[in-house]
Design a protein around this nucleic acid. Sequence first.
DNA 1: TCTTATTTTAAACAAACATTTAAAAATAAA
DNA 2: TTTATTTTTAAATGTTTGTTTAAAATAAGA
Lengths: 207, 207
Amino acid sequence: MPKVNSDSEEKIKAAAKKIFLQKGFDGATFKNISEEAKVNTALLNYYFGTKEKLFLEVFDESFFLFIRLIYQIMEQDIPLEVKIYSMVDKYTDLILENPMMPIFITSEIQRNPEKLIKHFGIFKQPTDTFLARQLASEAAKGTIREIDALQFEMALLGLILFPFMGRPIMNLRGVDTDLAFKAFVLERKKIIPEMMMAYLKTGTKQQ
Amino acid sequence: MPKVNSDSEEKIKAAAKKIFLQKGFDGATFKNISEEAKVNTALLNYYFGTKEKLFLEVFDESFFLFIRLIYQIMEQDIPLEVKIYSMVDKYTDLILENPMMPIFITSEIQRNPEKLIKHFGIFKQPTDTFLARQLASEAAKGTIREIDALQFEMALLGLILFPFMGRPIMNLRGVDTDLAFKAFVLERKKIIPEMMMAYLKTGTKQQ
DNA sequence: TCTTATTTTAAACAAACATTTAAAAATAAA
DNA sequence: TTTATTTTTAAATGTTTGTTTAAAATAAGA
């Protein structure tokens, strides 16, 4: 059985990822992608069938890695302060490698929630998470103040992710190179955990 | 001179706003919009010329209100703590009335930065803002710790805006009605200022 | 009323779109 | 080298896109 060592499929996937990230599903065209990959347009259908299948296959691995990683860290049985530092550190690094992902994911979900949620098998999370119990337990001990787990998560995620989503704003404020932006984001690895801990410790004996 | 009292133009603008917000510029079609407005498709061109002109006219007022309001509050000559509470309060209310705006704005800018920045007349902001001087002055007095103004702004904005951008995540975590979401967001009017102040006060005599 | 200007409509438009087809070219196996 | 299979290509597909056109309908002023 003949097997041809062609890299067209991989070139298409790489090009599709780049174009989709930049233009979104609706804005990206087969012409864009085939030109970026330097292959004939018909090859996209030959290898992937339809535009939707190409989209789903390209983002199958990476799309909800970004959502799952949150829970993976949040649910670890490690001290709260360590968890916060770990979360900020790991998530910042992940997004730094894919800085367009946050806007891409949120906008694609806003425009086609049922399709994405169905295909990527996202399911309702229990409200009774390890993190929730951990926060409640620490508050009961008096080491931190009381806080709703979801409020805690949204605060942490917002602090980590927003600079990437508000990048255009930052451009207007002088952070207009990749280097400057990276420096800005890395500085947050210190600021964010300190901010979270400062809040959690207010009103406790420790502070 | 004949004047006809037709409300088609307003119906189109309202429909266009709704469809554009939901589907973005690329995803929205004249068919979508004309059906939503219950008018003939050709009327969109009759009143607005092109799709791009319709888009720009519809969002002319509201688009960068969301960016400008930030500076308006940030640059006020009021005490820092009052400023933080005011910012959270006013911005939360504004976004609650237009919950799809954050994702819409960020994704549209990501996909067409030059067009939007040019048309809406966004210009580079000075790095030497009133807020920056205010933060430096307070830090010099020892009432707060030192913090970069842009880091301060991004933290505040991320805390306010992220729940709106991550709404799909919140859906999976039990906050699955508009009422529950609104309650969640309003609770942040207390949490966010406390979080910011807790951070600013760490290491100072006052705390 | 008649006339004029405005608004709405159906139809047609070319361009762009994703996709299919069928043949050619390239490659690997026999 | 011959044969079989895979890959690539150019061309054509039908649909949808935004837009234009020209006629019809409507309203206002004379």
